[in-house]
Amino acid sequence: MFKILKYSFYDLIRSRWSYVYFLFYLALGFVLLFLNNDVSKAVITLMNIIIVLVPLIGTIFGVMYFYNSKEFTELLLAQPVKRSSIFLGQYLGVAGSLTLSLVLGLGIPFVLYGLFRSDAIFDFSLLLVTGAFLTMIFTALSFNIALSNENKIKGFGYAVLLWLFLAVIYDGLFLMSLIVFEEYPLDTFSLVATMFNPIDLSRTLILLKLDISALLGYTGAVFKQFFGTNQGFLVSMLMLVLWTVLPIWRLIHKSKQKDF
């Protein structure tokens, strides 16, 4: 597996897109910090970018890489290599290089700016951790989509749709159902609904740091228990791990049954 990972990783490191992605984050980090001169504000802007852009890029990159490396995959399949190693290796190659671009691209400007001397370091690290999780989750989801769809255009379409759904439409439906059923106690429902969307989940995790004062303004006991204690953080993290592991597990499972 590590050999596959190595080759996928090298392949990606050499491809133009990894650099574009890396440079994008680098530029973003510098612009946010040095034009604004305000770490707290930069962290908030970054959060908006991370929960929207990182999933999108993870999805598109994942699908693109999967289809483009079809030949590589077929070549490997005839070699004495375990199937799950091939896909896991490729997946980790993509997710790893994307995560690396994200962490380095944002990390360098922040470190140069003097992050270690600022108390925003925890917010920022949390931001990077969630960004990494989102990359892993959405790359895994997009690999699943690509694996199930031979047709490249179709696969691409589904992947973008998935992103659109989780990033925007889901919250729209969520909001509407909250307003429609506002007479009922909704705090358990809304927490559960959050768990089912990795983007919302990551957002909640960051809100726990950035907006805890607002979240505690709500009266429900379940909310209070969730946001007021470490429980919220632990549960969210656990769910994020689950969101990462499940698509990877399905990827391995499906790949074993697929014909090439």
Partner: peptide
Amino acid sequence: ETIILLRSL
């Protein structure tokens, strides 16, 4: 309860 959608896209 909609507070949970704070800062969503």
